[in-house]
Amino acid sequence: MSAYAALSRAVYKAAVRDATTVFFTFAFPLIFLVIFALIFRNQEVADTGRGYVDYIAPGVLSWGLANAALFGVAFTLMQWRNDDLLRIIRLSPTSIWSVIGSRYVVALGIGAAQCVLFVGVAMLPVFGMRPDPTWPLAIPIMLLAVTAFLALGLIVGSAANTPEAVAAIANCVVVPMAFLSGSFYPLELMPDWLQEVSRVLPMRYVNDGITYAFTGFGTMTDYLVSCAALVAFTAVFAVVGVRTFRWSNDS
């Protein structure tokens, strides 16, 4: 078995064996879906003939994906550094890219599973989401979103030395970003200047891209801009992530 495959398996098992991870990754976004469905029950968005769920679901999904990717990798990195696992890996012939690659492939798998579960539930008659035929466009956005937030998670995981610090920093990053990016609340209802602020936040582009894929809201150009923006954010986060990376806590 290659180091890459073994590490992927180790990361996967660590994730699915933790009830908290499973809950926050899969159940938590669904709880938000239920809450918003109750708030906006039976309301239609003016002039579209669509239910609110078609606009709310992509937002909640964007947040769920970003949240799981960022928390997952930040926790793994902090934990592996604290437990001296990074040191063990560094003292073996395995390359650091196998480590990051294994974490990446697990994050992509988890992201895909989140999407399938979440959209599947949202399409139940009780929620009534109806994705457009362009829905496959959500797949590249999903991959780019996981990549960007994984890179951001590397920074958080290097900055934090305790689980509490990971949770605190990650929440400070993700929760305001979710609101400011229109994941929970339509951007159109926000003041103009706040809408401008959202342009410097990666989650906005996840949100825009997934919304376009599922509802056709926006244009193909916007969609491509979202993809490009996520690539750019990934590059920036990756550079910072590599610079802040630490093999151990005491060096």
Binding site: K13, D83, D84, I88
Partner: peptide
């Protein structure tokens, strides 16, 4: 190398 902290993969 055996490290002072027991380095074990999480939840395995």
């Amino acid at each position: 190398v055996q490290t002072q902290r027991s380095a074990f993969f999480t939840r395995l």
